[in-house]
Amino acid sequence: MSTPGELGTEPWPLWEVFVRANRGLSHVHVGSLHAPDADMAVRNARDLYTRRNEGISIWVVPADAVTTSDPDAKGAFFESPAGKNYRHAVYYTKSEGVKHL
């Protein structure tokens, strides 16, 4: 299931744009744009999303190439982690007050 937006009917396809704001940070989704191909998409993304030094690196991905989790199964898909509190440090209270733990 792809991201919403690519309709498959427009003259230029839709691209999702991800920008790395600075070294040490991940690329973050900032929006989308239209471009005839990947080369133009990355250039359009530069002009559209980094006019004010917002980024040092850009990814563009055809919107229809993104696979997302199934929205209908939303609840079930993310149910499993709930209750597995032992994955979190705060679950372990007996060590409170002990240094460097």
Binding site: P4, G5, P11, G31, S32, H34, L48
Partner: peptide
């Protein structure tokens, strides 16, 4: 004026997630 073109594009992108194309 260039920013305004950019704003138009941000918004068309947002609308497009609702299932309507920019064209």
């Amino acid at each position: 004026v260039q920013d305004e073109a950019g704003h138009g594009l941000y918004l068309y992108s947002a609308a497009q997630t609702l299932g309507i194309g920019r064209d």
